[in-house]
């Protein structure tokens, strides 16, 4: 459970540090005149609301994967573990996901700089590359099945299917948000500020899931 614990400790320590900053040395029992126009919100006002929600979601997803990895580490120690040989296709998929992240970053940079011409090609490239990753993962599963590497063969196989599946589900969830943003850009109903924020948040999530994948892939390769 060490992996889960360490991850949680990092998340909780971040939260604790922030809470300390907010509450240290305050005297809550002293009333103070507050002007109704005063700036409020501990994290720079409410325009960050969706970013905060995304950060909270990423903390949940981090906890989820850290716990699977904890289980992975514990299960690996038992006698019947036989390391699985991962299909070479995973390398191609990884490259696709990296390029998807890069494409989205490029789109985001364009949106921030006000270069609207980047939005359509950038978003479509992101979608194609990400869908390519998902399809690639499915083909990798098929290759494994064809090669007799079934989920029941060994716990390492079971974890492989579980981890890749869980990761793909999270990407598909992100694709839903991507699809909404892209549809608005295509239909021309997008409003500059809103679409920029959507793309910014998508970019963070894509980078996050890329990082998760790199950790998972590294672990799968090394064990």
């Amino acid at each position: 459970m060490e992996i889960g614990l360490i991850t949680l400790a990092v998340i909780l320590a971040t939260l604790l540090g922030w809470l300390l900053k907010q509450s240290f040395n305050t005297q809550p029992w002293i009333a103070e005149q507050v002007s109704a126009t005063a700036h409020h919100g501990p994290l720079g006002g409410s325009s960050n609301t969706r970013l905060i929600a995304l950060m909270a979601l990423m903390a949940v997803v981090t906890s989820f994967f850290a716990l699977i990895l904890s289980a992975y580490a514990l299960r690996m120690e038992l006698g019947d573990w036989v390391p699985m040989t991962e299909p070479q296709l995973l390398w191609t998929n990884t490259v696709m996901l990296i390029f998807a992240s890069l494409a989205l970053q490029w789109t985001r940079n364009g949106a921030v700089k006000g270069q609207a011409s980047r939005l359509k090609p950038g978003l479509i490239a992101t979608g194609v590359l990400t869908a390519g990753f998902i399809i690639g993962q499915l083909i990798a599963w098929q290759q494994l099945q064809a090669g007799g590497q079934l989920i029941t063969n060994n716990p390492s196989n079971a974890f492989f299917y579980f981890l890749t599946g869980a990761h793909a589900v999270h990407i598909i969830g992100g694709m839903y948000v991507w699809a909404r943003a892209t549809a608005r850009v295509m239909l021309g109903t997008a409003e500059g500020g809103t679409i920029r924020r959507s793309i910014e948040l998508c970019t963070i999530y894509w980078h996050f899931l890329l990082l998760v994948w790199l950790i998972l892939f590294g672990l799968l390769l090394s064990t």
């Binding site: 305050t26 409020h40 501990p42 994290l43 409410s46 960050n48 609301t49 905060i52 929600a53 979601l57």
Partner: peptide, 22 residues
């Protein structure tokens, strides 16, 4: 999780003027 993200974000982001954490 859907509810929880809402509760956390609301506490962090939607407090009225003067409602500090403490």
């Amino acid at each position: 999780t859907m509810g929880g993200l809402n509760y956390v974000t609301t506490v962090l982001q939607a407090r009225c003027q003067g409602m500090t954490l403490m």
